[in-house]
Design a protein around this nucleic acid. Structure first.
Length: 672
DNA sequence: GTAAGCCGTATTTTT
DNA sequence: TACGGCTTAC
């Protein structure tokens, strides 16, 4: 507590009503949340099991849990909920699924499952493959986040396209229900619906969660806000922490205006601003403040720090995009040698993922080790999707998406035409594929051999599911992957034996994770079932940890969006050009403010030095264009910037400069 | 089942 | 331009 500043302490101690903490970048908001949890337990006599802290990402939740565990002895923290919105939704749904009409083993469709289902519906009902499935999926997700029910969506649709989306939405929901499945959005939406329809259930959860803390509040969507509001309705005992200037996810449903709404919905709301920044130099903050001052604000806020002015902000113009990447690679090497730093102290931020490509090539050429955030997630890997398919089918045989995923992996000689006929039959009878397999009516539609294969598969699954009840689940799972000779299949379908080996390791890692989850609270009252372990797993949780262990000495490459919440001693932001940052579409949609916040987020990642680059000329969609430097550069105070490469008319001037830098580099290296 | 060729598209992404 | 997704042809 003594390590907190006055404002932070005030935020921790204020418990007499609803509280909004406007926490600027780097102002120690996580410390406030974790200290507050400790304070509530130790000083206010609130039991940990009556406190919930909600975040958006597993990473944030994990960090928070770790930090709380350092402040609170384990037995005092017992029952504390630190979870993502989705995990909290899952917890509630697991307990209340019956009221909503779901069976215990319900599946969670990830966005790929959902997409496949939406595609099927669109083809079947509209024969319209021209329509963009991704768009429809996003539209449905938006409707769900806005809490618009299918019937309402149908009635308010004001053109054919919207009507089509609404109809697909309705059918999609019906299918999910039939599959005993929910999607990510449902994890929030269904809980809100449940609370509305069953006040007694709401009351039960209000009693469970007596103090609520919400992180990154500006990122909540309508459904999430509704959930928060309902949970805190009676007690108004909550703290939300957010920063309207860091709202960069409006495009996927986040409603930063929820900050204002909070003020309206809770007139007694107290607002505390955290403006002291512990991360960056004063100059970096001055530039950040200057840029964001161009946005309208409900709550004025200005960051400051005691870390000294620091270096000037560098703006580097290069000839073209090639030189831009080259320059960044060289600057990193140069700086690292001169200042004797580590590669991991550097980050390069960009607007769009494609911008990393050239940069990667240049970094490789200079043998600069790097890591890119935002590659394929663990769950996007094919072997994991397969394995999850089996697990899902085991606990929920109605899960058609899982059935289709694994029925012929490895090969069981069950091909597309068999599945199509089976699907037709199942649709007619309104039953799942799994059930359809056992129906006698199939004999008329499918050849003997196909039916035999299908029934073999079904019987094998049934036996395995029974074994899970009788024997130790983990050994059954291990046996299952051996049974189907999955490893052999991987070897046949991977590029190299090494890759196959790695993929099999991933599968075993998945099984291990389940084992760990099952064993963690074995014998306890709320012992985890196989069902809940598997559904937890789907919301990631422990799996992404292993990916991040690759924390060796590497330069970080990431999008501005992905950089939120992180910090680096030395930051590069590339592509400061009109049409890139701010992005072209945002200019067209007149949505400069969110782009400006993105710029703000980028600037405030830097602790010591900040370098921004742009190319005078760039190839775009095949043709060369003269670029215009980003308007955001004009918004930065000139006296804090140093420009390089600007106004040099000779296009070779930069080349010369590059050579010069390289030469000095070689000298330095020779000296070592 | 695979490889070549054609077409359309071109932000940000978590759960 | 460049890539991915999809169709087509073997």
């Amino acid at each position: 507590m003594s390590r907190l500043n006055a404002r932070q302490r005030e935020a921790v101690h204020y418990i007499s009503g609803p509280l909004l903490v406007l926490a600027g970048a780097g102002s120690g908001k996580t410390s406030v949340i974790t200290s507050k949890i400790t304070y509530l337990v130790e000083q206010c006599g609130i039991k940990a099991k009556h406190i919930a802290a909600v975040t958006f990402t597993n990473k944030a939740a994990r960090e928070m849990r770790e930090r709380v565990s350092k402040l609170l002895p384990a037995h005092d923290a017992k029952g504390l909920i630190v979870a993502t919105f989705h995990n909290l939704g899952l917890t509630i749904l697991r307990e209340e699924h019956k009221i909503l009409g779901y069976k215990a083993g319900f599946s969670i469709f990830d966005s790929e499952d959902a997409k496949a289902l939406i595609r099927d519906i669109m083809i079947r009902d509209f024969g319209d493959e021209g329509e963009e499935v991704n768009q429809v999926q996003a539209a449905i997700s938006n409707l769900k986040n806005d809490m618009c029910e299918p019937d309402r969506a149908i009635s308010v649709a004001c053109n054919d396209h919207e009507l089509m989306i609404a109809q697909v939405y309705k059918t999609y929901n019906q299918y999910l229900k039939a599959y005993n499945a929910v999607d990510f959005d449902d994890l929030i939406l269904l809980i809100v619906a449940l609370f509305r329809q069953h006040p007694e259930v709401l009351e039960k959860w209000q009693n469970r969660v007596r103090y609520l803390l919400v992180d990154e509040y500006q990122d909540t969507n309508i459904a999430q806000y509704e959930l928060v509001k309902m949970l805190v309705e009676t007690r108004s005992a909550f703290t939300v922490v957010g920063d309207d200037d860091q709202s960069i996810y409006a495009w996927r449903g986040a409603r930063p205006e929820n900050l204002v709404k909070l003020n309206e919905d809770f007139p007694s709301l107290k607002v505390i601003k955290l403006e002291q920044n512990y991360r960056s130099t004063s100059r970096i903050l001055k530039v950040a403040n200057a840029v964001i001052a161009n946005n309208p604000h409900v709550f004025e806020k200005a960051l400051w720090s005691e870390l000294g002015m620091g270096d000037e902000i560098r703006i580097i113009q290069t000839r073209n995009e090639d030189a831009e990447s080259e320059r960044i690679a060289v600057e990193i090497l140069d700086h690292k040698l001169k200042k004797n730093t580590h590669f991991r102290d550097y980050a390069v931020l960009y607007r769009g993922n494609h911008q990393s490509r050239l940069l990667e090539m240049k970094l490789q050429a200079h043998q600069v080790p790097y890591r890119i955030s935002g590659g394929t997630s663990f769950f996007a890997k094919n072997e994991i999707k397969d394995a999850m398919g089996y697990l899902r089918l085991l606990i929920n045989p109605e899960d058609d998406a899982a059935f289709l995923r694994v029925v012929n992996v490895p090969r069981r000689e069950i091909g597309p035409s068999t599945l199509e006929k089976l699907g037709e039959y199942a649709t007619e009878r309104d039953i799942s594929l799994y059930r359809a397999v056992d129906e006698l009516g199939l004999e008329q539609r499918l050849p003997e051999k196909a039916i035999q294969k299908l029934r073999q598969f079904r019987q094998w699954l049934e036996r395995t599911a029974e074994d899970c009840q009788r024997k130790e689940a983990i050994s059954v799972l291990k046996q299952m992957f051996t049974d189907i000779e999955y490893e052999d299949w991987l070897y046949q379908n991977s590029n190299t034996p090494k890759q196959a080996e790695r993929r099999m390791d991933n599968v075993w890692y998945l099984v291990d994770s389940i084992q760990r989850m099952l064993e963690r609270d074995k014998g306890l009252a709320d012992e985890m079932t196989l069902e809940s372990a598997i559904s937890r797993l789907l919301l990631m949780d422990m799996l992404e940890q292993q990916q991040e262990e690759d924390d060796t000495d590497k330069v970080h490459l990431l999008t501005l969006h992905a950089s939120k919440g992180l910090e680096f001693p030395h930051c590069f932001i590339m592509g400061l050009e009109e049409e890139i940052l701010p992005h072209r579409n945002s200019i067209e949609e007149n949505n400069i403010e969110e782009e400006r916040r993105l710029m703000y987020v980028g600037i405030t990642r830097a602790k010591k030095t900040l370098t921004m680059t742009y190319a005078a000329q760039r190839k775009q969609y095949g043709e060369k264009i003269e670029t215009i430097p980003s308007r955001f550069l004009d918004e930065m105070p000139e006296e804090d910037l140093v420009w390089f490469g600007k106004g040099e008319k000779d296009p070779d001037a930069n080349k010369a400069k590059g050579r010069e830098t390289l030469a000095s580099l070689r000298n330095l290296m020779d000296g070592l």
